[in-house]
Design a protein around this nucleic acid. Structure first.
Lengths: 205, 205
DNA sequence: GTCTATAATTTGATAGAC
DNA sequence: GTCTATCAAATTATAGAC
């Protein structure tokens, strides 16, 4: 049993349903009726608990952003050798998104829809981890001659891209290359080590 | 003058407006009223020319997919050495998306919303370029011992990720790192060479 | 707290004059 | 072809009984 199914409160059922629907359809595409149906209650109760669609969406979005951002990204602030840090970041982040595959596209869409609104909303609730320390560490390693010369920001983008993008492109990838759900999981599992090795190979001289 | 502004036909004005609105807001978030306003005409005329929202969206989407997919990706089918092909792909693709920054997120959202619907729709209009030849070429180079051993599909994903993802993450990147429009352009310009070098460094032994 | 019924608003689509 | 006015459907939100 993932969670007691029957003795959940209505509020919990609504939040779970809202999460499913909003993450798949976004704010504009989601319907309050569908959320109510998914939760097994009726529309009126949605408004009873959350007043309106926007407030409900905010709850879900903040929670999604909290799951996507701080947890894993703080690895970058840890006190670890660069290569270990890269390996740890890629592996943990792929784990997080494997369990929540809709997360990245959902959050990035919202940022795109309203960038500063996004920033205000979450800066109150949670502090986005800053990459400065990681960038400085890269810079150091370059200066020490331990790795090939790279722009820290470009390297950071390389790592982030290779980790997040596969989940965004997943449906296209599945459709076009012809892989099913299981094969995609295998692909991402393999990727945890193979992409890390790729990055490190590019840096090592 | 980018294009004669006054003597455009209404149909052209509508298509341009629809492109702007749909690319930014998606199918669900776009409003016919907003498209009409952007085009400087009224709603009735939208329906006169395109019958309904879905048909108008289809026009825009097919056109967007046609711009995103085939042109540049066919480089991968060319008869070129692997490294030149990688350099060419990255550089040209970044060019395409620099001119159409909303393209990737827009198309990937639609694929996500309705994967097989997407495939049916465009397979009639345009043939998606297949990556098999490119994958086999990578496999060959590995077998010949010219590059480090890599899974062709993983390498393909690495290249695609590093090229496309920055445009999807652009608003977040700008907001969080604090770069403006000009700096982002510089970053992507630098990326054309630096990311290609990164990939090649990872492959060369 | 939870429901049914209904109001209010938004939005896509059409009728009909010019 | 283009407009104004209007309709019809979808969707959010509320009133009020239990």
């Amino acid at each position: 049993m993932s969670k007691r199914l029957k003795d959940e409160t209505s509020e919990e059922k609504i939040l779970e349903a809202a999460r499913r629907v909003f993450l798949q359809k976004g704010m504009a595409g989601a319907r309050m009726q569908e959320i109510a149906d998914e939760a097994g209650i009726n529309k009126a109760l949605l408004h009873y608990y959350f007043r309106n669609k926007e407030l409900l969406f905010d709850r879900i979005f903040t929670q999604a952003a909290a799951k996507l951002f701080p947890k894993v990204v703080t690895i970058l602030d840890a006190d670890l050798p660069l290569f270990e840090k890269i390996e740890g970041f890629i592996s943990s982040y792929i784990d997080v998104m494997s369990e929540n595959p809709y997360l990245p596209l959902f959050v990035l869409n919202e940022v795109h829809r309203d960038p500063e609104g996004f920033y205000k909303r979450i800066s109150g609730e949670l502090k986005l981890p800053r990459p400065e320390k990681f960038l400085m560490q890269i810079d150091q390693e370059v200066k020490l001659g331990n790795i090939r010369p790279v722009s820290p920001l470009q390297l950071f983008m390389n790592i982030l891209s290779g980790t997040v993008f596969p989940f965004i492109a997943k449906p296209l990838f599945q459709m076009h290359i012809g892989v099913d759900e299981f094969q995609f999981r295998q692909f991402m599992l393999q990727r945890k080590t193979e992409f890390a090795r790729f990055v490190i190979d590019a840096l090592r001289k």
